[in-house]
Design a protein around this nucleic acid. Sequence first.
DNA 1: ACAATACGTCAGCTTTGTTGACACTCCAAG
DNA 2: CTTGGAGTGTCAACAAAGCTGACGTATTGT
Lengths: 165, 165
Amino acid sequence: MSDPIRSENLLYLTDEQLRQGIEAMYFAYRGFTADPDRILESMAYGRAHHRAIHFINRAPGTTVTNLLDILGVTKQSLNRVLRTLIEDGLVESRVGTSDRRERNLFLTEEGTALEHRLSDAQRVRMRTAFREAGPEDVAGFRRVLEAMMEGEMKRQYLSLRESGK
Amino acid sequence: MSDPIRSENLLYLTDEQLRQGIEAMYFAYRGFTADPDRILESMAYGRAHHRAIHFINRAPGTTVTNLLDILGVTKQSLNRVLRTLIEDGLVESRVGTSDRRERNLFLTEEGTALEHRLSDAQRVRMRTAFREAGPEDVAGFRRVLEAMMEGEMKRQYLSLRESGK
DNA sequence: ACAATACGTCAGCTTTGTTGACACTCCAAG
DNA sequence: CTTGGAGTGTCAACAAAGCTGACGTATTGT
């Protein structure tokens, strides 16, 4: 069971295969972010704004602390991004109803419009890649990615996933 | 053929599935870089140093311009990273033999040692993920990632891949 | 009343990216 | 042999986006 030759077909676990997997992740991630980056660079925004917009859209009314946990950045770093988005009228920050210390974050119409532009671009690429591959490959893609996540992030991913109906 | 309901089983192409794919990429990439990041932050290095070290190790004797193309950054940005690596004795820059304008880059023993530490950490995670999934899933993972790359990057990925024995 | 929580902000630092300008070496073509 | 251009390196200046530490305010819960 520990001998890669005797046990089964474990050729996909050779160092060469693993290195190809590493490089595939590197180059694919660049493709993955390329389209939104092109849209964002025309405005005054960057990837950090995209991430904030994505997850606010994903969980409308989310609190600042919750966003902090998902994004894994510091309060100051997020706040800088959030402030510009609020100033620019893309995000609305409402005082919490049950707990007035909290701020519930929402996308405005304008914010939703930008979110659509960004996610459309990303979905087109994802859809093309998924279609080029096929259902079996997509299932494998997802299973490997999920196995690659760290514990806490995987938890958040799964919780977002199940909240997505 | 354009109707997702009638044509075949294209449930994996719904917006919800695509969004899950997008989020999977985001969270998985964070896991993917987490281990090397932990090693690097103890030193004075960052991800940019890792990338340079990786590709110099991958193609010893590569030129600065070649590295520039692969990494997709500016000369100045790469040069800053390269300079510290050379000063610290991890990378050696030799004047080109055929064309003396070029600099051929190599890892020193010390550089190779760091490369091993970094890629070992990354391979452990990749191997665990690959093993958790299985050969079919790994093949799908790779096919989807390759379909997600942009043209020029895919070309470079494939050329690295075929040069890898 | 008091401690803890959620949030915002100020100041300052780091890494990694950018542009623009300039110099040097070398190869190759005229 | 001169000259143009390619490959490389360096300087200055700047921006995005991360970080730490400290502090203030409002609100909540004990």
